[in-house]
Design a protein around this nucleic acid. Structure first.
Lengths: 135, 135
DNA sequence: CCAACTGTATTAGTTCTATAATACAGTCAA
DNA sequence: TTGACTGTATTATAGAACTAATACAGTTGG
């Protein structure tokens, strides 16, 4: 069963899109694999404290993109080939990197400065992650 | 008069927020300076092909953040001190860098791989920018 | 001065996001 | 088998984002 323990909703972005991204990124990372069961719409919505219809919207889109298969009565299941994962990886990375480089260049930040900043935040989040594990 | 020549609306994000960001980032980059006149609501909305009320919403928020001053009958004017610019710089950078490092780590991308990707896109956009100038 | 431009305000309608309350039919384990 | 769980569908409501049309008051240049 796919876990949503590390799912942190952000304000400003539609929740159903965040669920979509969370699963796609998990697939790219390899923490979510082909054949994995997803939590039911009702259970997940209760866990996240949101409406079942919002989860349904996200899952419906995953179904349309043929990343999961659903069948009335049974839990939805991940259905991802290595090929799909590669495509996901490229698409998600391109979008993410494009947005950040665009933003930084627009602010007149040099590449060197950008690297320094990313380095800094990377370590910060690393220590944050560790802290949450050991507390 | 502040130019919106390099403004490229993206789908998925509210337009008024994109206008807000465009101006803030311009202030951080130094291309938009204290005392600069903004185009009128009507003119800018016509240029961007959007509704005047959408521009008004963005400008109203800039007014609330005390980055511009407006007065009925006259054009709005940038009103930014060096202190405000520094604060903007920190806020925008933190938000941008945080989102990208979060996304990359969630996909299991290493720091080295991230740098390589950013390097690649940085050059791509550079050549794109040059192409648009020389064509 | 005054016409053309400015910022500001109001009302109305559409689409999208999210919630809420049901209802129905298929699956599955006890 | 059967009861509890599944996915799916429908209808209603509310707020945000965006468009549209209009109105009014202040400024500014010719």
């Amino acid at each position: 069963m796919i876990s949503f323990d590390t799912f942190k909703p952000t304000e400003g972005t539609p929740i159903y899109q965040q669920i979509l991204l969370y699963i796609k990124r998990g697939a790219v990372a390899g923490t979510i694999r082909d054949g994995d069961e997803l939590p039911s719409r009702r259970v997940l919505s209760a866990l996240l404290g949101i409406n079942p219809n919002t989860v349904q919207k996200a899952f419906h889109l995953l179904e349309e993109e043929e990343l999961i298969v659903s069948q009335a009565g049974a839990k939805s299941v991940m259905k991802i080939t290595e090929e799909k994962i590669q495509k996901l990886r490229e698409d998600l990375l391109r979008e993410d990197i494009r947005s950040i480089t665009g933003a930084l260049r627009q602010m007149g930040i040099s590449r060197e400065e950008a690297f320094k900043l990313i380095d800094q935040f990377w370590e910060e989040e690393e220590t944050e992650a560790l802290r949450s594990i050991f507390l």
